[in-house]
Each structure stands twice: as structure tokens, then as C-alpha cells.
């Protein structure tokens, strides 16, 4: 069967942008490395080594594949982990270091830039959402629907 128009486009883009599956696989391994070791002190050199690349070459290919630099990606992973920890009682300073940030100032600044909230405000916000959601469990279905109109309002 002749390839469809879409299949032709896929093959064309693959040939032009991602011609080497092995190289792509190595960059994906580097991403996995960051997913696993986000809490450690990681330098670009460590990540590119895990992908057997020069730092410059690795940076370019990573951005091409994921649309962000390895540093931005690592920051995003750390912020996501911090968001999970902020739902617990752990102090913000402990969370900051346990997800791999080295200073509370930069953690707060990056967290705010990424989520629109300070870590403290994010914790309060998710706490409020949980309290409202759990109290709604005890309301009849119809009332909880009506109530959600208020709950969603900021």
C-alpha cells in the first residue's frame, strides 16, 4: 500500500530533523537520568556524559527534542516534585533541598515563575481545595454540583 500524505510528511520530518534513532535514544536516556537523579546536584556535564555527548551538541539536540533546555527540564521536574511535597507537612526549606535546589531564594523565585504562586501560597491553595473537596463528599450530589460553582471561583 502506498504511504498516505501524512505518512510521507512523518517520514520527511523524521529524515530532516531526527535522522538518527540511536542519538535520540541517548538523549532520552539523559532525560531519564534527570527524572531519576533530580534530587542530586547535577551539572550539564553529568547529563551529557550519560548520553555520551559533548555538552554543546547535547544541549542543541535536547532542546530540539523536548522544546526546552536540559536545565529548564530539570527545573520543571524539581518544581513538580516540590508541588507534591507541598501537600505534606514538610517545611518549605526541607522540600527545597530535597528536590535538588541549592538555595531557598532561587527555589521560591523559580516556583513562583513556574506556578504563579509562592510555595507557601501554593500550599494554602491546595489545602483549601482539599478541605472543600472533602466537605463536599458529605453533601448530596445535586448540592455539591451547585457548590462547585463557588468552589471554582477565585
Amino acid at each position: 500500500m502506498a504511504p498516505t500524505f501524512y505518512h510521507q510528511q512523518v517520514l520527511k520530518i523524521k529524515g530532516n530533523v531526527f535522522p538518527n534513532d540511536d542519538l535520540c535514544r541517548q538523549v532520552m536516556q539523559a532525560k531519564d537520568f534527570m527524572d531519576k537523579h533530580f534530587a542530586d546536584k547535577i551539572a550539564l556535564k553529568d547529563i551529557s556524559c550519560s548520553a555520551c555527548y559533548s555538552s554543546f551538541h547535547f544541549l542543541r539536540l535536547f532542546k530540539l527534542m523536548y522544546g526546552k533546555t536540559p536545565h529548564q527540564y530539570l527545573t520543571d521536574v524539581r518544581i513538580e516534585k516540590a508541588k507534591e511535597f507541598l501537600k505534606t507537612d514538610l517545611p518549605v526549606s526541607v522540600i527545597c533541598f530535597s528536590v535538588g535546589f541549592e538555595s531557598i531564594g532561587s527555589f521560591k523565585m523559580l516556583f513562583r515563575r513556574n506556578t504563579g504562586y509562592t510555595p507557601h501560597a501554593y500550599r494554602q491553595h491546595s489545602l483549601r481545595k482539599n478541605v472543600t473537596a472533602s466537605s463536599l463528599k458529605y453533601l448530596p450530589f445535586f448540592f455539591s454540583l451547585k457548590k462547585s460553582n463557588f468552589q471554582d471561583g477565585k
Partner: peptide, 8 residues
Amino acid sequence: IKPTNMGA
């Protein structure tokens, strides 16, 4: 299209 790698 069978499974085809496209970068990530």
C-alpha cells in the same frame, strides 16, 4: 503507519 520513532 507502524510504530515510528520521531525524536522523543
